Simulated assay, not measured.
Amino acid sequence: MAVFARRLCHIAVHVPSGQSFARDLQRFFGFQPLAEREADGWRQLALRSGHAVFLVNEGVGNREPLYGVDLRYAVPSATNLCFEVADVGSATRALTPRGCKLLVPPVSVQDVQGAATYTVVSSPAGNVNLTLLERADCRGPFLPGFQSLPSATSSAGISHVDHLTLACTPGSSPTLMRWFHDCLGFRHQPLSPGEDPEVGLEVAAPSGRGGVKLTVLHAPPSSAVPYLVLAESLQGATEQDQIEKFLAHHRGPGLQHVGLYTPNIIEATERVALSGGQVLTPPEGYYQQPGKESQILAAGHEPSKLAEHGILLDGEKGKFLLQVFTKSLLAEDTFFLELIQRQGATGFGEGNIQALWQSVEEQAARGQETKG
C-alpha cells in the first residue's frame, strides 16, 4: 500500500555559502524568513510565502543538516522534498519493501516548541530525496531545532506550490511514474484526450526536430500535494535542448523548476521586474498568433499588459492558464521558478508548453551570440 502524503512541507535547496538564492527569493518573490538554524558549518534558512516554503541550506559542513540529506552534490541543486505523513514508522515499513533506501532512519527531535519525527528515503529521480515528516506535536512556526524569525507579511501573492517539474533522462518517465504511484499514490493526469500514460504528451519543437515529452501526475484528491511533472527530451534534436542542458549542467536528473501559484500573476510579475528579477521573453510573434488577442480578452486581460511582462496565456471554453518563467536562479543554470495563475484550468496548456520550449531555446541562442 502506498504512503499517503498529506501535504508538501518544504523544498530543500543546497547552495554554497554566500550565493544569492535565499536573498533572491525574498527580493524578487516576496518570501519572508520563517526560521533558521546554524550548526556544523551549515546555515539553514526557511522562507515562506503563503503555504510555499523553501529550506535553503548554505555551507560546506561535514555533517548532514537537519531534516534532509547532504549528498555532497557536485553543483547547487534542489535536493529534497519534504512531505507530511501521519505516521513515519508506518511509512517506513510500507516503503522499505518497495526498494526505497533509508538514507536517514526514523529520528525524533524536540525542543520547547514541540516534537517531530522524520525519515529520509531515496527516490529514482536523480539526487532528489524525500523527507517524510510527522509533526502533529510540533507547535512552532517551523520545526524543532530551528529558531523562529520575525517576518513581515508577504506582499507578492504567492499562495502555494502548484507543481514540481523533474528533468528526466530519455525513456525514464514510465519507471518514475510507476515508482511515484506505488510509493506515494500518484496517478496519471492526461494532458490531452486519450493520452497513453506510457507515452505522455509529446510536444514537438517548432523546428520539427526534437521537443519535450511531459507526463503529469497528481496525488490523491484529499491531499495538498502539488502536481508532479516528468519532462524528458524527444529524440531528433540537432543540438542540446534545455532538458539535455539541465542534465549536463546538473550532472544528472533532478528538480528543474517549481511552479508557484499566484492569484494575480500580473502583480507578481511586476514585483519581479521592479526588484530586478528576469523572466524569459516569449517567442517572437507569440502575441500575434491568430486568435491569441481574442483569447486573452476572453480571459479578462489586456494583450498589451501580458506582452509587457512576458506572460503566456492558453485555454478555451472559459478556462485559462497564465504562466511566466524566470531565468535560472543559480549560476550553474540548474534551477528556475515559474509563476502560474489558473482561471479554471487544471492542465498545463499545450500552446504554452510549446511557447516555453521555444523561448528557452531562443534565450540560449541569444546567450551564445553574446558570448561569441
Rank of each mutant, 00 (worst) to 15 (best):
Y261E: 15
V120F: 00
L297D: 11
L66Q: 04
A205R: 07
E64R: 15
L260P: 06
G185H: 09
Q278F: 05
V324P: 08
T165D: 06
G89S: 10
H51Q: 15
R43L: 12
S233A: 12
T370G: 12
T153F: 14
A116M: 03
Q368V: 11
A237N: 11
Y286W: 03
A152H: 10
A365D: 10
N57Y: 06
E244D: 08
R98Q: 13
R27P: 10
L25D: 01
A152R: 14
L130M: 12
Y67D: 02
I266L: 14
F146M: 07
F146T: 07
I266W: 11
P253G: 09
V109Q: 05
G171P: 01
L8A: 07
G126R: 00
G185W: 08
E332I: 06
M1D: 15
R72F: 07
Y261Q: 15
V360D: 00
R271T: 03
D87C: 06
V225E: 06
N129L: 09
E369K: 11
A2V: 12
V199E: 12
V75Q: 04
D196L: 04
G210E: 02
N264V: 09
R43G: 07
R98F: 11
L55S: 07
Q295K: 15
E239I: 14
G315L: 06
V112R: 15
I265T: 10
K371Y: 13
Q358P: 12
K305H: 13
H249Y: 13
T119N: 00
A78H: 00
G200K: 04
Q32G: 09
V128M: 09
Q341H: 13
G171W: 00
E202M: 11
L191Q: 08
L339K: 04
G89W: 01
A22Y: 03
I296F: 00
H14G: 11
L25S: 05
C82P: 05
G372H: 12
P144W: 00
V13D: 03
E58Q: 11
F320D: 14
V199N: 10
T175Q: 14
L339D: 09
F325D: 01
I11C: 11
G194Q: 08
L321D: 06
T215G: 04
N129I: 03
C168T: 06
H257N: 02
A46G: 04
R366F: 05
G367C: 09
V109M: 07
A237K: 07
Y118W: 01
N80K: 00
E202W: 03
Q343S: 12
R187V: 13
A219C: 03
R251L: 12
D111F: 10
E244T: 05
F29W: 07
S328K: 14
A136Q: 15
D196S: 08
L102E: 03
I340G: 04
H14W: 10
G18D: 06
